[in-house]
Write a protein that binds this DNA or RNA. Structure first.
Lengths: 229, 229
DNA sequence: CAGTGGTCTAGACCACTCG
DNA sequence: GAGTGGTCTAGACCACTGG
């Protein structure tokens, strides 16, 4: 019943939960009680329980106490690197080609994702990312010029992604992964057959004054997004 | 320069970082200094900085101090629900059909992912998950019987996934998302055309005594894995 | 070896919310 | 209204690691 640090205390409590000492949904003792039981300060118990709550093992509510989660939800941490970093991290040379740069009315799906009026004029950028000359990802980006604190200029030398992370304060964003068959334009750029199954990541980024950009990234065949739980 | 809680302190420091007061890679003041500056206890500064570190905004090392991260890596938290929960959370009725249950030598790819000897005999389960009777996901699971603390019995009434989360202590796992064209068997079960682009999640779970199970989950067309950043 | 972050303690106050 | 978790303080010790 002794624990020296909050991590070992977390393990001790986690073990008791796994052993069904407290069944699913059951109330476990309060922080003060556990602090006495284990001979530690209440703050230490608090940290251990917060870690378990963050891991989805328990649910905590004021006044109601701490309960064993009915069905444990796994939470994974996903790291989303800038493409250039990902490529260079593999020891490959990064490059990109700006395939198109135009101003056009945003398609309905994009406008909806960005919570903007349908048909709003936005900057549309199409970029191909390369690793050692081989196609890595096909990027389709819509950028709301009104949301930018300063005009970005052309994106010939610096990718839009990197310009944005350096110049626009980030507030929140939405990210989704899905699978889709490659349209002809994407397939041609990536050098795959039309209709090939590709992993697509969609990202909408919001700044202080609303949506900034919406990106659809078609990854090369075989690309995997990996994480540990 | 006053901050009342660790969250407002985190915001204050984040704002100074975004304002380039400390450039990328720069060392920011130590905890003790910041505690004096803001008139709070060092523990409060510690919590604020730990939150920024977890968000990828700063990097902290003992002795070396806290630095502004060179390129901010976005970290997203993915919640991986049990399929039944996901379905029922949408208000649909969950069901599953066990399509196959056999013992067979693990294919090389599976054995490698589970860090087991090639050809090791494992239990192979094929399951179709349904939401309101409509196919939701096609599951291909390999289960190492040696890694289980107790024999699981048949999985006719309780899905293998739920039996495992309830009976096997979880240590770590690997999760990957990819896109793949549906093989004939999967396409038939999901009611889609062969070769359709499907989102696939692969998961390998490790217990105290090694790999427990390896799962390949073919999601229905249009399925998205979403998160916020 | 010295400075930094990591952690723990004992005590306190507060916000929230359940009964 | 009362009990719970959330947070803060002031002080302390320690592990790690860069110079």
């Amino acid at each position: 019943m002794t624990a020296h640090g909050w991590e070992s205390l977390r393990e001790a409590l986690h073990a008791r939960i796994r052993a069904r000492e407290w069944p699913q949904g059951a109330l476990i003792p309060g922080e003060e009680q556990l602090a006495r039981d284990y001979g530690v300060a209440r703050a230490t118990v608090n940290r251990a329980l917060q870690a378990l709550a963050e891991a989805g093992v328990v649910e905590r509510r004021k006044r109601a106490g701490t309960r064993v989660a009915a069905l444990p939800v796994r939470r994974a941490r996903l790291e989303i690197p800038v493409i250039r970093q990902e490529v260079e991290g593999r020891g490959a040379a990064y490059a990109f080609r700006l395939l198109a740069d135009a101003t056009a009315p945003a398609p309905p799906a994009v406008a909806q994702a960005m919570q903007a009026a349908a048909g709003r004029m936005m900057r549309h950028l199409v970029t191909l990312h390369l690793a050692d000359g081989a196609p890595q990802a096909f990027e389709d980006r819509w950028l709301d010029p009104e949301a930018l604190p300063e005009p970005p200029g052309d994106f010939a030398g610096l990718s839009a992604n990197e310009w944005l992370v350096a110049h626009v304060p980030f507030v929140s964003g939405r990210l989704a992964f899905l699978a889709a068959a490659a349209p002809a334009e994407v397939a041609a750029a990536l050098g795959v057959e039309g209709g090939a199954a590709l992993l697509v990541s969609e990202r909408t980024t919001f700044g202080p004054s609303g949506a900034i950009t919406h990106v659809r990234l078609w990854h090369r065949p075989g690309h995997r997004v990996e994480t540990t739980l």
